[in-house]
């Protein structure tokens, strides 16, 4: 698995670099607009806009990680470079596992970088505009007044992030499955890419519809424990979808796909 992972990193180095350079440029843009801003409304608006761009880019980043991961896998299945990978003495499970692990590692590194940027930018803004600090104090006062525990909300955010990650990987695996499925019966079809996408979309809609009718375990969420329990059915469902897609993709690669 280690060697497969090494080559996943190498193959995706250029596209990963593009994403990171984009983030670095936006960060520089934000810091420059922050430190050159005067205490005027228009300057603060400029800082706000650049911060908004960073938030928007963070979302774009994860979409790009998804697209790159699927595009890379589709390339291996549909072009001759697939020989390079599939002629190695490795099982399809190891090959798919290495691709997922790379996506997980890159997504994780990206998430840590984004969190680091957010924390650093917030601190820089607090240093630049003292008023932000006093706003923070005000928020803290409101929290205390209503006896709201910030730590509880932090854990809730962690819960939602974990749920998002599970859901994200189930969608990545669903796309892998759709690409592999189309490589079996549409091997020489002209519009194979479009059909793969439609298969993916169809499967995604069906899965989201099923997920929508899964009953919640706890109707009201007041405690952290309750939140985690409330997220459990959706997380378990997405994990089951992911496992089914891994199994299906590996089976198709092992017995049905012809390169």
């Amino acid at each position: 698995m280690g060697k497969l992972l090494k080559y996943e990193i190498r193959k995706n180095r250029a596209s990963a670099l593009v994403i990171l350079v984009g983030l670095a440029l936006l960060e520089v843009f934000f810091l420059v607009s922050l430190f050159t801003a005067k205490e005027s409304n228009s300057a603060i608006l400029g800082v706000f806009m650049s911060a908004l761009l960073l938030v928007f880019y963070s979302m774009v980043c994860f979409f790009m990680v998804f697209i790159l991961s699927v595009r890379n896998y589709s390339g291996e299945i549909n072009t001759k470079t697939g020989f390079m990978l599939f002629m190695t003495p490795r099982t399809p499970l190891a090959i798919i596992g290495a691709k997922l692990l790379y996506t997980l590692i890159f997504g994780g590194v990206l998430a840590l970088l984004l969190i680091g940027c957010a924390v650093g930018d917030w601190t820089a803004m607090a240093a630049k505009f003292g008023s932000i600090e006093s706003t923070l104090d005000m928020v803290k006062d409101v929290f205390e007044m209503f006896r709201i525990d910030p730590a509880r909300y932090l854990i809730q955010i962690v819960g939602y992030v974990l749920n998002f990650l599970i859901s994200f990987f189930s969608v990545v695996m669903l796309a892998y499955f759709a690409v592999t499925l189309s490589a079996t019966f549409l091997q020489s079809a002209k519009y194979r890419g479009i059909i793969s996408f439609l298969i993916f979309l169809g499967l995604l809609i069906v899965i989201r519809l099923i997920e929508g009718v899964i009953p919640g375990i706890t109707p009201r969420v007041n405690e952290v424990g309750e939140l985690l329990v409330a997220l459990l059915p959706s997380a378990a469902f997405n994990l089951a979808v992911m496992a089914a897609c891994v199994f299906g993709t590996v089976w198709l690669l092992e017995y049905k796909v012809s390169l």
Partner: peptide, 10 residues
């Protein structure tokens, strides 16, 4: 050895 070029671009 496949007949086609099968190497990664890099």
């Amino acid at each position: 050895m496949p007949t086609e070029a099968f190497f990664y671009g890099y």
